[in-house]
Design a protein around this nucleic acid. Structure first.
Lengths: 345, 345
DNA sequence: GCGAAGATATGAAACGTTTCATATTGACAG
DNA sequence: CTGTCAATATGAAACGTTTCATATCTTCGC
């Protein structure tokens, strides 16, 4: 349209102000400017003020690349997730971004597509940028990570290689569900598990079953039926359909699932079969995804403290507040909603 | 546990190989190595091979910070979204990350929380890293963006400031829904719109209504009722409940919504009111979120080509394949599923 | 008022690239 | 064999920081 104008604009070379300009403006040396910028307290207040003023006057912004070259560190945190379009990881990413931003760090995001090879590639790509730290949600297929680097790496939710893990205390959290269903009076219950090839699947199942068994030890008319599935909706629906096919006298009065997706699948199966929830059947999920609040009845679920997990992960890799690089488990909360109630007597 | 061992490991200083080392190993000058690495063809094949070999032998990796300092560009693309935990933005982010990775670029992610002030801050933060380009999904509250930079910026889905927009052709896509419902025979329809303060909300409503009005011009017994709401689930449920309260002879035989969330809200309202979908009421959504495939009946919806949008956005900011920085609109597909059918005669 | 010891400020060196002016090589015509 | 010109290779400079050895200023005891 206006080639001349366009040309003119794009040619306006951004002449960036450097630490040198600031030094001249403030009448000090570059070293002093650098010190002030890095909040070094050995600079006298008078000078410090002059420098700060000069920085403001000139609108000076440090060149991050130059800084990175000198210090071989960028103010960034890498994050590798299996699939950012999975709402759970998206929530996690959001919390991590927020926490990182609080400490002046930018988040680099990469997807591994649940493929260990791609995961290794992405990890390497992010490490190449020399971030302050790297946070990885491991692939479902667990493998070793042969990376060697001085950059702190932690895994979150699912362990990555041999790196320290920060995650919900799945075992304890799952036990909360067992407590809840037991307290309501359920004795004939079914547990829809996640794949036992995953640590998360194993821990949640163990947490629920062990607690339920302890609670019901020596009691009459107790039945705990476990079926294994995937974490997804379809798996929950199919398995629930089987479980609920039995006559009402012997079918479970409550179903606990290893994920909300499964639980919602079970909810739909129950509705299709004309089984009222929660009057004739209680259903509990795990993860408290947004959808859990939207289904009818609203789903009782376990809410992971993603903010806590994100905080620990970021602090751990940044070495903040003495949070060490080490396995850490965060407790979760049971959120009781309309999908669970006492069984019909 | 093993303090000595730990000490030892953490003290092993990573001595990184530089372009100098490669030059020595290959018996050439650093300039030559640099040329080879930047695929400069004025280097003779013999030398090129020697350098390539040396790079392989030494496992040399260029220092990205140093390169960035020299060239004042990092191989990164910034992405600012209102909320990464929104599945739609998460899907978009995934596609953008994939496309950027294809061209050797890392994605930096930031959330604006739908807050213009935060958005401005995040945009600035990402620009400070001197990425190759910046992609922004604007806040709901549209405002001007006073940023001035040489870095290419495009907005996606929702316009950011005065920057070029790459988005679904919402008007045309919404018209597809009108076509579909009209073709099925619906004449008494309701449209649940998004907020008319948003461009997306306005375009989708106009697209649907204009087309429906054109199709039905001059016909008998036609009624198009528009109600305005938010894009969320609750809004859809409430509005649908009102719409469906009327006697069956005058209530709409079809509801089109500006979002899947609204449509699913409407679906639940219908179920609660004992109105069968699709026999007594057709419902169509927009966005084709994952959930659209999970509800019963499965939701007819408009599927945006996020891969296309991501491709255009990345190519635009990177100046690839001659994709210019300019407004661009991508067509969408109607996905017909079980929630729409011909009205009961 | 002097000297010593801290406290504070300075500026040159270094980080690892890319670029570009210059040097070297090779090819070829005379 | 020499001179010319193009093709190719070289290495020093520059990018903007931070750091650290050195220089300068304060303070304070005597």
């Amino acid at each position: 349209m206006y080639p001349l104008l366009q040309r003119h604009i794009s040619e306006r070379r951004t002449v960036l102000t450097t630490v040198k300009d600031v030094a001249r403006q403030a009448g000090v040396s570059v070293g002093t400017v650098s010190k002030v910028l890095s909040k070094d307290l050995t600079v006298k207040v008078a000078l410090r003020d002059r420098v700060t003023q000069a920085v403001a006057d000139l609108g000076y912004k440090p060149n991050l690349a130059a800084r990175a070259l000198r210090t071989s560190k960028m103010d960034m945190v890498g994050l590798v997730v299996p699939d950012i379009s999975n709402p759970f990881f998206a929530q996690l990413a959001k919390q991590i971004e927020a926490e990182a931003a609080k400490h002046g760090h930018v988040v680099m995001l990469a997807n591994s597509d649940d493929d260990p090879a791609a995961e290794a590639r992405q990890v390497q790509t992010l490490l190449d940028q020399s971030p302050r730290g790297l946070i990885v949600v491991g692939c479902a297929s667990e493998g070793v990570s042969p990376i060697k680097t001085d950059i702190p790496v932690v895994s979150v939710d699912r362990r990555y290689g041999a790196h320290d893990l920060i995650a919900t205390h799945n075992r304890a959290a799952s036990a909360l569900v067992a407590d809840h269903l037991f307290d309501l009076g359920h004795r004939r219950v079914a547990y829809i598990s996640g794949p036992q090839t995953t640590e998360v699947g194993r821990l949640r199942q163990a947490g629920f079953c062990d607690r339920f068994n302890v609670l019901t030890a020596g009691l009459q008319g107790v039945d705990l039926h476990v079926v294994e599935g995937q974490f997804d909706y379809a798996s929950g629906e199919t398995l629930a359909r089987n479980l609920l096919g039995a006559a009402s006298a012997i079918r479970p009065t409550a179903i606990a699932a290893a994920s909300d997706q499964q639980a919602i699948g079970a909810l739909c199966a129950a509705r299709d079969l004309g089984i009222q929830v929660p009057t004739m059947l209680s259903i509990a999920g795990f993860d408290d995804i947004d959808l859990a609040r939207l289904v009818v009845p609203r789903l009782t679920s376990v809410c992971q403290r993603l903010d806590q997990i994100a905080l620990l992960a970021v602090h751990a890799v940044l070495g903040l507040n003495g949070v060490p690089l080490a396995d850490q488990f965060v407790s979760a909360d049971l959120v009781v909603r309309g999908s669970t109630a006492a069984p019909k007597t």
